[in-house]
Amino acid sequence: MKALIIIDYTYDFVADDGKLTCGVPGQSIERRLTSITKHFIEQNDFVVFAVDLHEEDDPHHPEARLFPPHNIRGSQGREQYGKLGELVQSLTVQQKNSIFWMDKTRYSAFAGTNLDMKLRERGITELHLVGVCSDICVLHTAIEAYNKGYDLVIHEDAVQSFNSAGHQWALKHFTDVLGAKVVKDGYSTLIS
């Protein structure tokens, strides 16, 4: 059994005027990421939207020292970006109800969440990861998934970062250290 985890593909991380945007690199994966998400939804596979959540003026969060405020509760910054947001809006109520929407407050989608329990309840053994940033939240989610024994598939054409060198390093780390399959333009053979 497989699941798709869409990590932080939100307005704040992707839009030109997002609070912590990766900009054009993040925008370049919009069509592919949306296509992969649509495919998983149409196949009735388990789909997880892991969305970064921060509270306004929280000086105790470790990211407060590293990054400007972003993905603040109740803000436009937490909305799914572009075509992915349009896809979400077009889903039926039944489709929306079958998606697992989750808030995450750390880089990894597993840290402090019930994601592992939701995956194990469904017998999920293979995780497909898409989103941003490949060298931060996607990477930390992948590392924790690896440590929990999941098989990993990273969609190279649906992950990106504001840091080109970090992105390339992460792609190599996914394969060389985590044993992940890094795929591009041929995902249908892996997810059909």
Rank of each mutant, 00 (worst) to 15 (best):
R73A: 15
S192F: 06
Y146E: 04
L119H: 06
F174I: 06
S161G: 11
D151Y: 07
G149L: 05
N71G: 11
L91F: 09
D16I: 00
K118P: 03
E156A: 14
T125A: 10
Q94C: 08
G77H: 07
S108K: 12
F162Q: 13
R65D: 15
G186F: 07
G131L: 02
I99K: 05
D116V: 05
Q43W: 01
E42L: 11
T21W: 03
R73I: 13
P68F: 00
A165I: 12
I72A: 11
E126W: 06
G85E: 07
L115N: 00
L91D: 09
I99M: 11
I72Q: 11
V177Y: 02
S35A: 14
T105A: 06
I41V: 14
F40N: 00
Q95S: 00
R65Y: 13
S98V: 05
V93P: 04
I41M: 10
D157V: 07
D58V: 13
H39F: 06
E30H: 02
F67R: 06
Y146K: 13
G74A: 01
A145W: 01
F49Q: 05
D8Q: 06
A142F: 03
L152A: 00
I124F: 03
N114I: 12
V47P: 02
C137S: 12
T37P: 01
K19P: 01
E42G: 11
D135R: 04
V132W: 03
S108V: 10
Q76K: 13
T92W: 07
D157C: 08
P68C: 04
E42S: 15
H128S: 04
H140Q: 15
V153T: 14
R78E: 01
I136Y: 01
Y146T: 12
E121L: 11
Q43G: 01
D157S: 02
P62K: 09
L139G: 08
S134L: 07
N114G: 09
D58S: 09
L20Q: 07
N163E: 10
S98H: 10
P69C: 11
A165F: 11
Q95Y: 02
T37R: 04
L87N: 13
R106Y: 11
P69M: 10
D116E: 15
T141H: 00
D12E: 01
L171Q: 06
E126P: 07
V24I: 14
G74S: 05
D116N: 15
L129Y: 08
Q27E: 10
S188E: 12
L53G: 12
A111F: 15
Q168W: 09
K19D: 02
E55I: 10
R73Y: 15
Y146R: 10
F174P: 01
L66H: 02
G179Q: 02
V14D: 03
D45M: 08
Q95D: 09
I7N: 02
I72S: 07
S188L: 15
G77K: 00
L4I: 04
S188P: 08
E144P: 05
R120H: 03
L178M: 15
V177G: 04
D16A: 13
K83M: 13
L20I: 03
H70S: 12
H173D: 04
D157L: 06
R65T: 09
V88L: 14
L190D: 05
